[in-house]
């Protein structure tokens, strides 16, 4: 069956979620993956968006983090201070799903600037919820398209803490949560080395070569001893994802496909 590398990425990210998870969802790729999980193998998953919507079940993917669809299909909608105080800081969330403009080998993320902070080459949107999602959720999954510009040796700016600049800073800073345990890209799946916290490739998507992954990574990427091949998307997964994207495009009157 034909599928795109974006579809493979979204499906692989969705598979990491279970019906037991309470998931803090960002817009874009994370939102597509989380809702695909809910519509396929993880119907019990509880999705939370930073606009205050708890246990929301959107029929179409929201364009913004505060779309009416999220509120109308939620169990309840709380205020934004309550969301960050009780639900995120209160450590009620099992998984936070993040992306960014840059990630490094220890899963630290930049969504603030490219270049110098005071005179940036590119001014990005900034943290939003990410800085405290990165430390407040029990664990973090990262989903990003892989290229040497996004998977970098050194971040321009550390917006959201992964395992820290040397992979060891979380504990020193008194952060009790696990941090990033999974990176899903359009080429492969990475997990941190249990000793060093450096992300290494543990599964390669069908048809992708090691050479492509090496070229698409800005640091000398390592491969685990046993590297799996990611199972391709099933017919059921693809149908659910394409239906979701088609409903979304129709609802927004735009090309709603994000994954």
């Amino acid at each position: 069956m034909d599928y795109t590398s974006n579809e493979m990425m979204t499906v692989a990210a969705a598979r990491a979620l279970t019906s037991d998870d309470v998931c803090f969802v960002g817009i874009g790729l994370p939102s597509a993956a989380c809702n695909l999980a809910r519509l396929t193998h993880a119907p019990g998953i509880r999705l939370v968006y930073e606009s205050g919507t708890l246990e929301t079940k959107p029929d179409v993917l929201p364009l913004s983090i505060g779309d009416g669809e999220l509120c109308e299909t939620a169990l309840v909608t709380v205020s934004v201070p309550e969301m960050f105080q009780y639900w995120l800081q209160g450590e009620r969330i099992t998984v936070g799903f993040l992306g960014g403009a840059q990630v490094d080998r220890y899963g630290n993320l930049n969504s603030t600037v490219i270049g110098d902070y005071r005179s940036p080459k590119v001014r990005l949107p900034g943290s939003g919820g990410a800085t405290e999602i990165a430390t407040g959720c029990r664990r973090i999954y990262i989903v990003m398209k892989q290229s040497p510009r996004t998977f970098v040796e050194r971040l321009s700016f550390l917006t959201s803490l992964g395992h820290g600049p040397t992979g060891r800073e979380r504990r020193e800073l008194g952060v009790r949560t696990q941090g990033p345990t999974l990176i899903v890209t359009d080429l492969c799946i990475m997990k941190p080395d249990p000793e060093t916290n450096e992300f290494r490739v543990t599964s390669i998507h069908p048809g992708v070569t090691r050479g492509q992954i090496i070229e698409a990574t800005g640091w000398p990427i390592r491969f685990a001893d046993d590297v799996d091949e990611t199972p391709p998307p099933t017919a059921e997964e693809l149908a659910a994802l394409r239906d979701l994207n088609a409903r979304t495009a129709k609802a927004h009157g735009t090309d709603g496909a994000v994954g």
Binding site: Q85, S127, E132, T135, F157, T159, L161, L173
Partner: peptide, 13 residues
């Protein structure tokens, strides 16, 4: 007062 900004460069700027 809150549990935040840990490890983030935002505190530096």
């Amino acid at each position: 007062f809150f549990r935040g900004y840990r490890g983030s460069d935002l505190a530096k700027v």
